[in-house]
Design a binder for these strands. Structure first.
Lengths: 190, 190
DNA sequence: AGTATAAGTGAACACCCGTTCACCAGTCAA
DNA sequence: TTGACTGGTGAACGGGTGTTCACTTATACT
């Protein structure tokens, strides 16, 4: 069993249980009989970057050992098992979510944003924020109704434009309040 | 400071440091002066579902308190602050990734799947697996080249079909090996 | 006013944690 | 063959951990 494999085993424990194993638990994990063996192994895994310590000395998963291995372009093909070590890994949560308190996941209804690649049933990750620019896809309340559209501006007036020629732009009669900005689109295949 | 707020503060610590705070650390977190106060608070947060204990009694984040709050349809609008408590939350990682060891993230190149809502620059979450069905979007190697297409079957023969009328279906001359199945598409706006 | 109940203090305790020390077996190079 | 190095055992230790007990203070309900 090599170093990489052992690091993976610890990180799998973390992913399962949402916490690091104690040295005594690692005894069983590796069939060791002395916590000192674990101690030495952990020190090596730390210098190797699999694990690390936070400010107060507690063991935490190493930087850049998130959940998914990221590869290059599709055309480039898959790397061999040997190369995999070099790859960057990341957690989707950390990658997509900037402010967890104000981030929400919505299911999309309707086909009004089809030309932006957003289809009925997709999930959109939105952030409640005041920092909106024209051109962003926003969730807004216009005249009492909720929709998701492009935010546009013409002669100083903001309006909403769908990404579907079958729908008409929405010029607010009374109120146009931007509630959230779409940060990402996630489509999951069953 | 109410219960919800205190639970959030602990979970924020967890999201920051990737581990649970100790009772002594929570002292500072809540400006308490006795670990017993923390103890009682934690017990309440556990019965409230914010936190929980794993098999060996260690403190872990409660079930269903992942990263993102999930809401209903866009048309439904945002709930008020009071209602938010009722919402389901989940971790994108847990939701999207089934087998972490064989899951990879690829950046899409080309427009051949545009009608499936997959555009150049999107990220696709793929899983190296043998369980492929016709109709799935797959990453495959045909005659030495790598592409992502729909997997189709006609008269017992498997071929690849793009989701773009400008491209032609690919009937393998020599080899067609399915490398991975596309499980999800993620488009991130900057 | 009286009294439960909730919420926090302060101290004590047993236990588990990570660390360390001394020691041993195998391997590989000089 | 010697010597250094790697990877493991076994035991011991100090400190941090969660828990518990007795007590105090504040809030709320008759």
């Amino acid at each position: 069993m090599n170093e990489r494999e052992r690091g993976d085993r610890i990180l799998n424990f973390y992913n399962d249980k949402r916490r690091m194993p104690s040295y005594r638990e690692m005894l069983k994990l590796f069939s060791f009989k002395s916590t000192n063996a674990v101690h030495k192994l952990v020190e090596k895994l730390i210098t190797a970057g699999f694990l690390s310590r936070d400010g107060s000395g507690h063991l935490v998963p190493g930087e850049g050992w998130g959940q998914v291995r990221m590869l290059g372009l599709v055309e480039a093909g898959f790397p061999t098992a040997v190369e995999e070590v070099e790859l960057d890994t990341l957690s989707l949560d950390d990658w997509l979510i900037e402010k967890k308190e104000s981030t929400y996941l919505l299911r999309v209804k309707g086909e009004s944003m089809i030309n932006a690649g957003i289809r009925e049933g997709d999930m959109v990750l939105v952030e409640k924020t005041a920092r909106v620019k024209t051109g962003d896809i926003v969730v807004a309340e216009v005249d009492g109704e909720w929709t998701m559209k492009y935010l546009r501006e013409k002669s100083g007036e903001r309006y909403l434009e769908p990404a579907n020629p079958d729908f008409q732009p929405i010029f607010p009669r009374e109120t146009l309040s931007i509630v959230a900005v779409v940060k990402a689109v996630i489509r999951k295949y069953t």
